[in-house]
């Protein structure tokens, strides 16, 4: 199967931080959790995929097209939502959507109305009047109304209460069942336990592993005991501050 998203040898260097080389892929109709600690390079990777940040080297293909040369065509078919980003917080949702839909060839007003209804969004409200969970749902509504085939979500569950998080994960699962691919970054490993098919784990700018969730967990099994994702992450990342402080 040709991957929907393919990242190859992506490298981006900042003063004091180097990302990569990063390689992984996302298939259609799958949920990929992109995990790592805060500052591990998740957002830089996602921004590089979207050409918001320019990598020093490497390549990104989406829908079989190199993103750099086909940015406009690629963005017609994908949706992006950052964690707590507000677009035009004081404009009405109906005004924002009224402009946004002009850019999408596949915009479907009937779908838009359906998702407004499903998510309980009032188009007369402004983004600043929405809770964090509703903001993510608004971004999803926009993405799904132009029939996005790939959703790239940067920490969509951060700051959400447990019920909203659970609801969002249910939505991801339903979308996957309809053939939509979801790539979402998170440091909340329990999100992945519930819905991810694949896990890509990044640590200090480097990919530690990228595999199906089962194979990923199996690779960390010891003496027949399979740890959960949280145990894996803690085992890989935890620094011994007691020892450091004792020096």
């Amino acid at each position: 199967m040709t991957p929907l998203l393919e990242v190859k040898e992506l490298v981006k260097t900042y003063p004091g931080f180097r990302l990569g080389p990063v390689s992984f892929s996302v298939n259609a109709g799958s949920i990929t959790g992109f995990i790592g600690r805060n500052g591990a390079g998740k957002t830089t990777t996602l921004k590089s995929i979207l050409n918001i940040v320019h990598p020093d080297s490497g390549s990104v293909s989406i829908f079989g097209m190199p993103v750099r040369e086909n940015e406009k065509a690629v963005k017609q078919r994908l949706g992006y939502a950052g964690g707590a980003v507000d677009w035009y917080p004081r404009k009405k949702i109906s005004d924002i959507v009224g402009v946004t839909k002009l850019f999408y060839e596949n915009w479907d007003d009937a779908e838009y109305k359906k998702y407004l209804d499903v998510f309980g969004l009032d188009p007369g409200k402004t983004p600043r009047e929405l809770s964090e969970g509703m903001k993510v749902k608004l971004n999803l509504t926009i993405a799904l109304s132009h029939k996005a085939e790939l959703l790239i979500l940067d920490e969509p569950t951060s700051g959400l209460d447990p019920v909203s998080r659970e609801e969002l994960l249910d939505i991801f699962t339903a979308l996957r069942d309809r053939g939509v691919a979801v790539l979402f970054s998170t440091h909340i490993t329990s999100d992945l336990d519930k819905c991810a098919d694949h896990v890509t784990y990044i640590k200090k700018g480097m990919i530690v592993a990228s595999d199906t969730k089962e194979a990923f967990i199996d690779s960390f099994a010891k003496d027949g005991i399979r740890p959960d994702l949280e145990e894996i992450m803690i085992a890989c990342e935890k620094e011994d501050f007691r020892e450091k402080l004792a020096r």
Binding site: I52, E71, V74, K75, G82, V85, Y88, F103, Y104
Partner: peptide
């Protein structure tokens, strides 16, 4: 940021 995420 909103603008660069649009297909334009």
């Amino acid at each position: 940021l909103y603008t660069v995420l649009l297909p334009a």
